[in-house]
Design a protein around this nucleic acid. Structure first.
Lengths: 338, 338
DNA sequence: TTGTAAGCGTTATCAT
DNA sequence: ATGATAACGCTTACAA
């Protein structure tokens, strides 16, 4: 069954040596055209396939990169992976994927497993609950290029690809102000994560720049799900001074908020505007489509892959590159008054 | 920098031989507790990491599987991959992913690349445009387990994990009939693909069973996108005998249809019911949530992984397993009259 | 209990 | 232009 043809089989069949076969296969100049042709033909005939494992062991390069994300079935992450794969596959790289489930322990496991697998690089988005940094140093010490995308930690020698979350928050908030909203609330994820902190800061700055005050009651930190969006609105409804718009750092929160606003009979966008973040597919499919900040995940994946390639090109030169992509606000019905 | 510790380094440090180190590391019984402890300690101290590549080359097993899908950022597929990863990772397997972009040529490339990488198995969903089967035989001839999920070809020796598309079509159509719909149309993808053919057949059978006739004008074969849904409705509107429901073999088609029905002022579900297929995330988020047939992709991934594991357990026994999962109809507003 | 040595499939450095 | 051989890091008979 398992007919594995090696260069030795070809060599034997041709009464030459494996070295010659290898040379023929790798179009090494030191070989006659005649034998080269012969080798190529018999190789095809015997259905020879190069064993990349042996090559990897020999060369020390596996032509494989590891990608670590919290969950692979989240659109944002799978789109990034798509971007990475499409950039790297044509160059002969394989992409191994791991999920952390947002757990630090699993993240550490993943990294170790990938190092064991001798990957040529690790591209990852840091888990929400990661506090230690030892495992990253570990990677660097082994000389394996490490690239963070979206969620990063500040570590010397590690390149990052992120979007400008501050700008995203600023642009979204500015847009709401321009729609005539005066009391703009903010729903955010855990602000110990940089991305949420920056979105919040962008929001604050926009309010400031346009002479609006930040109302503490209007800033809510919560989980990234629909139910949390409901709860946030319930809370707002009890306020004397209710908001008339929300900039949400998550589309799911935004969706939950919209659902609950409707339940309270509030008209969107006439009485209340909402902008989300991430441009999840569903935001544009809704009848009341939701404005959202797009993070161009595929481009982020492409870019992360390119940064990795630069890194690997000059392994002697230590490159630390910080690429910041611009987010794009997608204006839809949930915030279009004009 | 690149401090790669091997068992030889440990051996040297301890004045013993690499074989002994290996034994200690693999808790081989033939070793004294003393040296074993010593080895383990120094291994930890020297930060030893086993090189899986060397192991793979030696053992002939890479502990890696390849997964091939059309696009990784389609929710259905990324969920399957999640299911595969979660089943296989705890057993020490890595998952390499490839995208075909629905092209046969790329599919063949992917398979060859994975074989070169010495994967222990290939789990895949066949590309829409695949007509040749040689590359699959190729895999089998190498003795590499092959498992198809969702989109399959009938090949001897290949296990498959699918859902019962006939049942999905039947259940959805029956549900529409029970809602009182009398003129149920069907939007389908390319029926040269088994999955769409079976959904169509389930639809037909349900109509038959309940004494309804199939109206040829009500069966449309088209692309799986929103625009095609619009067009289908436009066509239906010109008919004398208009349908009063749609069973669509795609959620995107269903969404397009709903959008266009609304444009025509038709009330859903009162005047017209719609059921889609795949249970895309957006279907349940819509204000007018869309009924859909769920394919339980994570379970499908889990199952595909398990089937692979059985295959690999007894590599001498040729197992050909056909697992068919039951689809679950999710009834939502777009078809809830009661 | 430990050491020796072969082998997994390549490529690269020598010779020839 | 080709052959012989070592090396990549590991496991595993076989010997001691």
């Amino acid at each position: 069954m398992s007919e594995k043809t090696t260069i030795y089989d070809i060599a034997k069949a041709l009464n030459i040596t494996a070295a010659t076969v290898s040379r023929a296969l790798n179009n090494n100049p030191k070989i006659s055209q005649a034998t080269k042709k012969l080798v190529l033909e018999t190789a095809a005939k015997m259905n020879y396939k190069q064993n990349k494992l042996a090559l990897a062991l020999k060369s020390g390069r596996s032509n494989t990169v590891g990608v670590i994300v919290p969950y692979i079935d989240r659109n944002f992450f799978s789109s990034i992976i798509r971007g990475i794969e499409e950039e790297l596959y044509p160059l002969g790289y394989h992409v191994i994927i791991c999920q952390t489930h947002e757990e630090e322990g699993t993240e550490i496991d993943n990294i170790n497993a990938l190092l064991n697998a001798q990957v040529d690089g690790i591209l990852m988005s840091v888990s929400k609950h990661t506090t230690q940094l030892d495992h990253f140093d570990h990677v660097l010490k082994k000389g394996v290029p490490l690239v963070f995308f979206d969620r990063k930690k500040d570590i010397k020698g590690v390149s990052t690809v992120t979007i400008d979350d501050f700008e995203g928050g600023y642009t979204a908030t500015k847009h709401l102000i321009e729609q005539g909203c005066k009391r703009i609330a903010h729903l955010s994820g855990d602000r110990s994560l940089e991305i949420y902190k920056h979105r919040y800061e962008g929001y604050k700055k926009a309010l400031e720049d346009f002479g609006l005050k930040v109302n503490k009651d209007h800033v809510v930190q919560c989980k990234n799900d629909i139910a949390a969006g409901h709860k946030a609105i319930d809370k707002f409804m009890k306020l004397d001074h209710r908001p008339d718009a929300i900039f949400s750092s998550s589309d799911f929160l935004a969706l939950g908020a919209i659902q609950q606003l409707k339940k309270n009979g509030i008209k969107i966008p006439e009485e209340f505007c909402v902008v989300g973040f991430s441009n999840e597919p569903f935001t544009k499919f809704m009848e009341l489509s939701i404005s959202s900040v797009d993070q161009s995940p595929v481009l982020m994946g492409n870019t992360a892959a390119k940064v990795f390639l630069e890194q690997v090109k000059d392994s002697n030169v230590k490159i630390e590159k910080k690429v910041v992509l611009s987010p794009k606000l997608k204006i839809r019905k949930s915030s279009s008054r004009s």
